[in-house]
């Protein structure tokens, strides 16, 4: 029979859980696959990194759109969040390399789909990392 958790013990445990999970989740966001790598699933992490890098690379080759928020266009907020899901590459491309895509490029729409997919896939990887850390997934 489990003992009831005291009020003082519960916040302390959740605080230590947060300290343990936050760096992993943050790394999972910044570098695609890093969360799984830190959890010991190294082979899988490298494959995930390659898949996301390939999707992003094709998107960039096709001059797809790397979304930023456009005033009075609320859907661009969602698209920007999806793109930001890829972590550090988003900020490097947007702010260091000043990449925005080329709207008149023939592969623009396809490229945008590939770039958005790269961001969304990394968001799913972050959720998967959180599930593994919380014990919901083995």
């Amino acid at each position: 029979m489990s003992e009831p958790v005291s009020r003082a013990q519960a916040p302390a445990e959740s605080e230590s859980d947060l300290k343990r999970t936050l760096p992993t989740v943050l790394m999972a966001w910044l570098i695609p696959g890093a969360g799984h790598f830190m959890l010991g699933r190294r082979g899988l992490a490298i494959v995930f990194l390659l898949i996301i890098a390939c999707s992003l690379g094709v998107g960039l080759l096709l001059d797809g759109n790397l979304y930023g928020i456009v005033p009075n266009r609320p859907l661009t907020v969602l698209a920007t969040l999806a793109c930001m899901g890829m972590g550090a590459p988003y900020f490097v491309l947007r702010f260091l390399l000043d990449y925005q895509g080329d709207i008149v490029a023939p592969g623009y729409e396809y490229g945008t789909a590939f770039i958005l997919t790269a961001g969304l896939m990394n968001l799913l990887l972050i959720l998967d990392t959180m599930d593994i850390l919380s014990g919901k997934k083995s």
């Binding site: 995930f48 390939c54 997919t117 998967d128």
Partner: peptide, 9 residues
């Protein structure tokens, strides 16, 4: 790419 990702995940 998408099929491989979800199959592994």
């Amino acid at each position: 790419l998408v099929s491989l990702f979800f199959a592994l995940l």
